[in-house]
Design a protein around this nucleic acid. Structure first.
Lengths: 226, 226
DNA sequence: ATAAAAAATGCTGCATACAAAATGCAAAAG
DNA sequence: CTTTTGCATTTTGTATGCAGCATTTTTTAT
């Protein structure tokens, strides 16, 4: 059931054609940055990276430009690209914005979502719970992200969903750190219980509130470790 | 005093080095899309566009990828890039998100802005008023945009400012249409008076409210002409 | 005459080649 | 011993060439 994790833009194009090299490269580089394989502040050597990934410099450079527009990479004229380094303030700023967007999404989703869509989120939630009980941190983490992504998509607001996805992706590297202690993890799970309850009750106010609170607590968890 | 209009990301890099070709190309293409020189839905022929702009396909393709990440251009596998076409719902969705962001910005700006920064917005506002009285629509329009950009930047929240700028830039093409009648124009100016008053009083609640209202009315003006 | 198949055209996608700029090192001058 | 200057090497930036896919036109068969 790993297709649940696929956080592709989904691009709702009926066409089946699989992702071109460009998309693959962008995804691969994004992962390398998020996982820390490409360290913040490090230069991205084109020929070396290209050889490592088995592509020439041309498509690689195009992918890098794409990521630069996403904000994961910084372009330095005549000196190529470096992985963007985020300060604690940067992270806080992003969380503030993400909080605002997710609160909006929570409010809208309770109005616009179909029953089937809500049921789908419930299924992801239940699976996440299983991973929590199994102490499977990585799967838990991915399903957690998927739920936030899903809720944004329930709004059927493409602009909102894509901005949420953008910020969430920038923060992935950070969120990875969270959930140190079991008690904090339990608290986060409890908040997710609140979310799904509010969503199923179509209580936008409650959903919005818990989403915002969830993010602020996430910030509390990571703010000292940056 | 046209440097007031410069809505560059400003990138606060101390370095003086002027924009490389990449940045120039991105800006030029963005303008061509916003001004309508490149019509929505039209294919962007690489060789033709490259010849027109005096560059080869390679840097042009890199610029197109950048714009694709910004959402102005859509990449179709094996068929190149097309200028993204926005439906009325798309525009409405973007305005909903922009409203949320500007409301947040209004609240934050009243806390974070320095007196000098507020004075600067006042100067832009006054100049905009002059353009209004002179019926100079284009200058008015640009200063109007500049004010919204400035307010977002007063938050000193890079993520917020860049997202606001991104959405505003996508909506530029649309906003151009607005302000048909003199009475509606007058109403918009009145709202801007409210804004600057609220900002100088550091009344975040009021600023936030008028920013949101301003955007909703903008939607009312354009919604039937899309 | 119409429809299906096949060839031809044009464009994109990727790789390679070339040019310009930057970095590092070494030698010489202060 | 430190600093500066010039050269060599490395790396980025841009142009061009070639292969493959998409679309269109032409050809052929019913």
């Amino acid at each position: 059931m790993s297709d649940v994790l696929s956080d592709l833009p989904a691009s709702h194009s009926g066409r089946i054609q699989r992702t071109a090299l460009h998309d693959t490269l962008v995804g691969r580089l994004r992962d390398m940055i998020i996982e820390g394989e490409l360290a913040p502040g490090s230069r991205m050597h084109e020929s070396q990276l290209g050889e490592q990934l088995g592509v020439s410099r041309t498509p690689l450079r195009e992918a890098i430009k794409y990521l630069a527009s996403e904000g994961l990479v910084e372009l330095v004229p005549s000196r190529g690209a470096v992985v963007k380094r985020f300060t604690g303030k940067d992270v806080h700023d992003m969380i503030i914005v993400l909080k605002s967007l997710e609160e909006l999404a929570g409010n809208l989703a309770c109005v616009t979502a179909t029953d089937e869509e809500i049921a789908r989120v419930r299924r992801i939630h239940d699976e996440m719970l299983r991973c929590y009980k199994a102490k499977d941190r990585l799967s838990y983490y991915k399903l957690n992200q998927a739920i936030h992504t899903e809720i944004s998509q329930l709004t059927h607001n493409e602009a909102l969903a894509s901005m949420q996805a953008l910020l969430q992706s920038r923060l992935k590297r950070i969120r990875f750190i969270g959930h140190e202690g079991p008690e904090k993890w339990a608290a986060a799970v409890a908040e997710h219980e609140e979310m799904i309850t509010a969503l199923e009750a179509r209580d936008g106010r409650a959903l919005s509130e818990v989403l915002g609170r969830h993010l602020l607590k996430a910030w509390e968890r990571v703010k000292d470790s940056i």
